[in-house]
Simulated assay, not measured.
Amino acid sequence: MERPGGRALARPTDVVDRAQVEAAAVAAEAAFAGRRLGQRRVHLVFAPFTEIEPGEFKRITEVTYLGYVYGTRTALKSMLPRDSGAIVQVGSALGDRSIPLQSAYCDAKHALNGFTSSVRTELLHAKSRVHITVVQMPAVNTPQF
């Protein structure tokens, strides 16, 4: 995909499958050689906690949280040896303030904040020039509320 000022690489990837995430990263590295790479994952179920099936809760957590864990691990494999790079996680205001009917999503976004903070602390301790942060996105064109 191309448009003025940008290119995109479409690669369907199940972010819960670490091997698929790593394969997508290899393809992106080859296509963009050193340019910024992005990822966005959302999996929502609107229901009271007691009505969310365990399998649904697990899948939401895997996609909304573990997808970031696997993506970060994969990005760090190429960034750490170069001692360069920035990882920007896409968070949510719901990672700070939970709302009803979205317990699994809010859970995962809270976990993302803690995970990113831990990795940031490890990178600082190692005096790495690789950076990681979370941007807390506002609700724009979303059915969340």
Rank of each mutant, 00 (worst) to 15 (best):
A86C: 14
N113A: 07
M1L: 11
P48G: 03
Y105R: 03
F115Q: 04
H125S: 15
M137L: 14
A25H: 12
S92Q: 05
V135L: 11
R82G: 02
N113Q: 11
P138T: 05
Y70I: 03
R11H: 12
P12K: 00
A126N: 12
A108N: 03
V140Y: 10
V88D: 01
S128D: 12
S103I: 09
L123F: 07
A27K: 02
E2V: 06
E53G: 01
K77N: 08
G55F: 14
S117Q: 15
P12F: 00
G6S: 11
P54F: 00
V16C: 15
T13K: 04
T64V: 13
G71I: 00
K109N: 00
H110V: 06
A10G: 08
A23G: 07
V130G: 05
M137P: 07
I132Q: 01
L80F: 08
V90T: 12
E62P: 01
L66Y: 14
F145T: 13
T13G: 01
S98H: 08
R129Y: 03
L37T: 08
T72Y: 00
R7K: 15
N141Q: 14
V42C: 12
L123M: 04
F115R: 00
R11M: 06
I60Q: 13
V134K: 00
V134E: 03
L101T: 07
F57T: 05
A10K: 10
E29K: 12
A28I: 01
Q144K: 06
V42R: 10
E56R: 02
H125C: 12
M1S: 15
V69S: 06
Y70S: 00
D17N: 09
A104Y: 03
I87H: 03
Q39N: 13
V16S: 10
T121Q: 15
A27S: 09
A27I: 02
A104E: 03
L76H: 02
T50V: 15
A93P: 02
Q39I: 10
S117Y: 11
L101R: 08
A111Y: 08
N141P: 05
S84I: 05
N113T: 07
R3F: 11
Q102W: 13
H43S: 10
L112S: 00
G67D: 04
P54Q: 06
T116K: 07
L44M: 08
H131D: 13
L9N: 02
G95A: 08
A75I: 02
V26L: 10
R36A: 11
A126F: 06
F115E: 01
T50N: 14
S92I: 08
G67T: 06
G6M: 15
R41Q: 11
V90M: 14
L44E: 03
L101C: 01
S117A: 13
S128M: 09
L76R: 02
A28W: 01
R11A: 13
V134L: 06
L44D: 04
Q136I: 05
D83W: 09
P12N: 01
N113R: 04
R35C: 13
T61F: 13
G38F: 14
E62Y: 08
A111K: 00
L112C: 05
G55K: 15
R73F: 08
V90C: 10
S98V: 14
C106G: 01
A24W: 11
Q102C: 12
A108D: 03
V119S: 04
T116S: 12
I132L: 06
S84C: 15
A139G: 09
S84K: 15
R120Y: 03
T142Y: 04
R40S: 15
E53W: 08
R73E: 10
D96C: 11
I87Q: 00
G95Y: 07
E29H: 11
P138H: 09
E122S: 08
